[in-house]
Design a protein around this nucleic acid. Structure first.
Lengths: 235, 235
DNA sequence: CGTGTGATTGACGCCTGTCAACGTCTGTGG
DNA sequence: CCACAGACGTTGACAGGCGTCAATCACACG
């Protein structure tokens, strides 16, 4: 583990101890190494686009990717974010459907592209890999179900507080307690499922109430328990 | 196929040609047959309950089951319905989490219970079974993502029209064009994510507009294209 | 310095949730 | 056979959360 940082990005996703590839045999690792393609994406570029056919999945080695669906009038609904260690695009590959989301890069990213055939081969032939991937998928499904309930039942105010807590959990805070992910107000609105103006107003309220501090896109978390209370997140 | 109806319920889920078990070997079929338990549930009974540990999954052989999460103030959010041929509970088994939903019987049901160990054994050792189950999971995930976008962006009116179309697709109409699933107004509200009164008012409007006809819980679909238009379902 | 994107604020009004009252139907028990 | 309870459906009144529109500000960039 100690030389993790010195690994070339070619080895990145295969070597991580928490990677989806942790259960591969020597031969399978060689196969993946042979078949995969490392790609680099700049902020703003699109890895794959909704309703396109996609012939493989992407392991994120570095960077942040936002995954969203396009709804009425082209309004984005952000489904999730992916960062180092996450894998995106496999849903469409394995369900043999067109991509149901678009994946766009927020922070410059390196990805490792695995062709469908390789992925399917692994699922079919390596029971442990299969279980791992199944587990990831099932967790995502559980989160999606929870979010359906939240959007359906909570107010925008509650959801915004909740999202701030989630972002903190997923991306952490820097030394100054500032969220380590930078989003526009519009993007925040597209996670919460509301209008940009509503996010702005509610963030101001949170600031007034000493829950957060704002500095452009930097959001500093002052009172996490307070946000948890507002978001009804007792669990 | 022609003697499907004469099969005892013990053979039901294993014999269906569209079943998740279609790719099992003779030995595996024997194993499942040996390990499974057929259970009968009356309307109103609960198959498994949210946040309980669940040690297996259930294949529905007959009946209708509603799967829901309990949100704020105990308000239900219906996630999906399951009917003959569907499998429920595997999400929690495979993600090693507590059940994230409750499954309650709407129409008297027969289920076939498969213990976790058997399910996991199959996933690990039968690549085709694994792929099939993965496909089911991925499809559910795709639907969940779509529903998140809908709830976040569409009005209650649009969502109600959409749900009626979905129910028609999933459960069909009888000879009289009446939806083959009977739900209370509250249950409809708990799918759409709104208040019971709103559903009642909107259904009345739909009736006024000659889109549907109401007779207690019986909903007759008069103008499907009209509902599709209202629900913004062009695809 | 103009242009464009994003952030902010205010005004306005509708959708929709909440509360309350009442009607309807079914099953139960006296 | 009737009274009653309880679950469900319906309707009306009302307020407020939140979306929409528009104007203005802030800031970065070519």
């Amino acid at each position: 583990m100690k030389n993790l940082q010195t690994l070339s990005c070619d080895d990145g996703c295969l070597a991580r101890s928490d990677s989806i590839f942790k259960h591969l045999s020597k031969e399978e690792l060689d196969l993946v190494t042979f078949e995969k393609t490392v790609e680099q994406f700049k902020r703003g570029s699109v890895i794959y686009r909704e309703s396109s056919r996609i012939n493989g999945c992407y392991c994120i080695q570095k960077g942040i990717v936002k995954v969203f669906k396009t709804g009425i009038d082209g309004k984005e609904q952000i489904i999730r974010f992916a960062q180092a260690g996450d894998i995106i695009g496999f849903r469409s590959v394995l369900s043999s459907e067109l991509a149901c989301t678009t994946a766009e890069v927020l922070d410059d990213a390196y990805t490792c592209y695995i062709p469908s055939e390789t992925l399917v081969h692994l699922v079919k032939n390596n029971g442990n890999f299969s279980m791992d991937l199944m587990q990831i998928t099932c967790k995502e499904l559980g989160e999606a179900n929870a979010y359906i309930t939240d959007i359906a039942q909570k107010t925008v105010r509650e959801r915004l507080a909740e999202i701030l807590i989630h972002l903190k959990k997923d991306f952490g805070l820097d030394d100054n307690k500032v969220l380590q992910i930078s989003l526009t107000r519009e993007e925040l609105a597209n996670i919460v499922g509301t209008a940009t103006e509503s996010v702005i107003r509610l963030l101001s309220e949170f600031k007034q109430d000493q829950l957060i501090e704002l500095n452009g896109r930097k959001i500093k978390i002052l009172d996490e328990p307070g946000l948890i209370r507002i978001g009804n997140l007792y669990e």
